[in-house]
Amino acid sequence: MTDTLVRPPFDPELEAALTVLREQLPATFTPDLIPVLRANPLTDPEALQARMAALGLTRRDVIIPGYLGDDIVVTVIAKERHTGTGPGIYHTHGGGMIIGGRMDGVEGFFSAIDRHDAVLVSVEYRLAPEFPDPYPVEDCYAGLVWTAAHADELGVDPARILIGGGSAGGGLSAGTALLARDRQGPALFGQLLMCPMLDDRDATVSTQQIDGIGVWDRGSNVTGWTALLGDRRGSDDVSIYAAPARATDLSGLPSTYIDCGSAEVFRDEDVAYATKLWEAGVQAELHVWAGGFHGFEMVPHATVSRAATAARESWLDRILGS
């Protein structure tokens, strides 16, 4: 490998939007920017609440025991008229392991909640570097255990819980699914991994291609993984639950959906994870969207963004409607 690998081109509509995004986001997320990024929430709470009200969705916050019994919060979102038992969606938010909160990314599931009368539980796992591995994934697992244990009162069928998240949340969903498998924990019937952050080793072609460009470049990725793992990043002392790309046996995992862009750091590790799932006999669907940078659906009007959303909604309809 060289440091000057040619990357796939950005989709023209997305590349035009990148010019605007560059005025709002740094090219590389460095450790000193973490407090600044946390001070600027990714989601507008008032706009989100208005969207929920328009769809007839309610929310409530619950304090539950997280890793080591410490208090963490989950938010439960459901239709106002939810009755009986429906599918459950357990959500782990993105943010590179260092930023974000439990309401970031939930809107992507609103239409599925509406169509399938699903109940969503989103977990406020603790962030690195203040709470390094294993806090984030163990908090996520604790929230999943709570969700399954309280399925009756939530109106959730415990045999139909789906886990999902984007970016770091995708990696945490994958790690939580591995924990659930290995600890004989809650049985998941699907995992939705959107551009998941899976590999701490900084060794793929795509991580070298996306350096100083796009959104969440190689330097940002190193920042996130170092915050989570410290000096262990890239060493042999990293668990498969922190970095699921390190897992050699993916058997026994639930039906999986993975997507990413062709021009993002996570492309190669996501494709490799899908391949490992197929090798293990797991049903998996993979989409690599041409010209997509990381999180490209933040440009919702772009044709490729609309196609990616439609494909994901189709998968959700198939699995939640089964």
Rank of each mutant, 00 (worst) to 15 (best):
D202N: 14
T176H: 07
C195I: 15
D11Q: 00
V36F: 06
L228P: 01
Q24K: 00
H91D: 05
T256E: 14
C260W: 08
P41F: 07
D152S: 13
L192C: 15
S239E: 04
E124I: 03
I99E: 07
T226H: 06
D44A: 01
S173D: 09
D133V: 02
L229N: 01
P132F: 06
D202R: 12
S111R: 08
L42N: 08
V73R: 09
T30S: 07
D3S: 14
V123G: 08
C195D: 12
Q49A: 05
W289I: 15
D114W: 06
S206M: 10
L25A: 03
A142R: 12
Y135R: 05
D152I: 03
A272D: 15
G69I: 00
L5Q: 05
T2W: 03
Y241W: 14
A142M: 13
D211S: 14
G94A: 11
S122G: 11
L48D: 08
T207V: 15
I240V: 13
I213C: 08
H82M: 03
R51S: 12
Y125L: 11
G214E: 01
D117P: 07
S255F: 12
D11N: 02
L286E: 09
S251D: 03
G101K: 08
M52P: 01
T85K: 13
E153Q: 15
R81Q: 13
G101M: 14
D104P: 07
V205L: 15
I258V: 15
A50R: 00
V145R: 14
L162T: 00
E46Q: 04
Y125E: 04
I213S: 05
A272G: 15
R102D: 09
R160H: 07
T176Q: 10
A151G: 06
M298R: 06
D157M: 02
A149K: 02
A39T: 04
R233K: 11
I163R: 01
T275F: 08
Q191Y: 12
I99D: 10
G171T: 09
V76G: 04
P186H: 00
A203R: 15
L198T: 13
R38F: 14
L228G: 05
R81D: 14
A245P: 04
G84P: 04
M1S: 12
I210T: 03
A243S: 13
D104A: 15
A112E: 02
V271S: 14
F110E: 12
R218V: 00
